[in-house]
């Protein structure tokens, strides 16, 4: 009796196992990814043990000895001296670099937010169609039909192109075009994030509750009026969440983009490295980490406010 019950139960388990949600595509993708990882470790010319060969370790030793703050070279560690050394660098270059890093990220993300929201409208399939939010009564003229059939896919593809090229490459090319100022970094960050925010916003537009918008449209509202009056208040909270979330990444990238020669933290990192002043180099890397942590904290704080409101 007991055994039979067990058997029935194991059959149930077998049935559950057989009916578990499976997807051949996902499964194949996972296997493919696994194969790729294995291939990359075997043929990727990665010699892990080589990293610990004698000349590498000699490099590491030299680095570690020179990474001590300059006034303390060859002396006992003294927090007072180290701190006053750090303070001096911070006053001389660090503060200015920190502020301009934050400034670049703020200008860039707000520009990206603005253009991203603008581009989200033609990228949303429910707005960029011949009769948004209402059933079609009569078929629109051919020109309008072709226009609206192309509008959303073309905008979406443009957004993909904007975000497929990394910020660093945008900035690298723009630097040659615009000359040295903070603009290339800002524009590069803004372009990449416009691509990302535009897509996220377009998805929010597509998932919006259509009823108020249908009513507005039924009263004869134009698309621009729908967007300004109906969509904006519905999108704002989520848009702000995305904005702050991307701002975190912007701060990270703004630090790094300075390496191309803008006055953010990255500039001082490359500068110190080029002068072989490893102590200053490490100081600026750590300062960058601190700035990113502060940025994360501010962003989390602002997102909490938005979520509560």
């Amino acid at each position: 009796m007991r055994r039979q019950e067990d058997k029935g139960r194991s059959q149930e388990v077998q049935l559950l196992l057989a009916e578990r949600p499976r997807n051949r595509f996902v499964r194949g993708s996972l296997y493919l990814l696994l194969a790729l990882i294995m291939v990359s470790w075997t043929f990727g010319d990665l010699q892990v043990d080589e990293l610990f060969s004698t000349h590498r370790l000699r490099n590491l030793n030299r680095f570690l000895s020179e990474v001590r703050p300059f006034p303390l070279h060859g002396k006992e560690w003294d927090w007072g001296v180290a701190l006053s050394w750090a303070q001096e660098i911070f006053k001389r270059e660090g503060l200015e670099a920190t502020l301009s890093t934050l400034g670049i990220s703020v200008v860039a993300i707000l520009l990206a937010g603005f253009f991203g929201s603008l581009m989200a409208l033609p990228a949303a399939r429910n707005l960029a169609c011949s009769e948004p939010f209402l059933p079609e009564i009569r078929p629109p003229p051919l020109r309008a039909r072709v226009f609206y059939a192309l509008l959303a896919p073309v905008t979406r593809f443009a957004l993909i192109l904007l975000r497929a090229i990394p910020e660093y490459i945008w900035a690298f090319i723009l630097l040659a075009v615009m000359g040295p100022s903070a603009w290339p970094a800002i524009v590069a960050l803004a372009i990449h994030n416009t691509g990302i925010l535009g897509r996220l916003q377009a998805e929010t537009v597509e998932n919006v509750n259509p009823n108020p918008l249908s009513a507005l449209r039924g009263l004869g509202g134009k698309r621009s009026q729908l967007a300004a009056v109906g969509l904006l208040p519905l999108l704002l909270p989520r848009g702000l969440l995305y904005l702050f979330y991307r701002w975190e990444t912007c701060v990270r990238e703004a630090t790094v983009l300075g390496m191309l020669g803008f006055s953010s933290l990255g500039f001082w990192i490359t500068d110190a490295r080029a002068r072989l002043q490893y102590d200053r180099f490490l100081f600026f890397v750590l300062l960058g980490a601190a700035v990113v942590l502060i940025g994360d904290f501010i962003s989390a704080f602002l997102r909490r406010i938005v979520r509560k409101a």
């Binding site: 990727g44 010319d45 990665l46 010699q47 892990v48 080589e50 990293l51 000349h55 590498r56 490099n59 590491l60 680095f63 570690l64 660093y168 990270r252 990238e253 630090t255 790094v256 390496m259 990192i269 490359t270 490295r273 490893y278 180099f281 490490l282 890397v285 960058g288 980490a289 601190a290 990113v292 942590l293 994360d296």
Partner: peptide, 24 residues
């Protein structure tokens, strides 16, 4: 948070300075 706070490029530069050029 420490791992995340430094950008991958900065980690790369840090390793470059500490070890020299290496694929690893």
């Amino acid at each position: 948070n420490l791992m995340r706070s430094t950008h991958e490029v900065l980690w790369a530069v840090l390793f470059l300075t500490a070890f020299g050029l290496s694929n690893t």
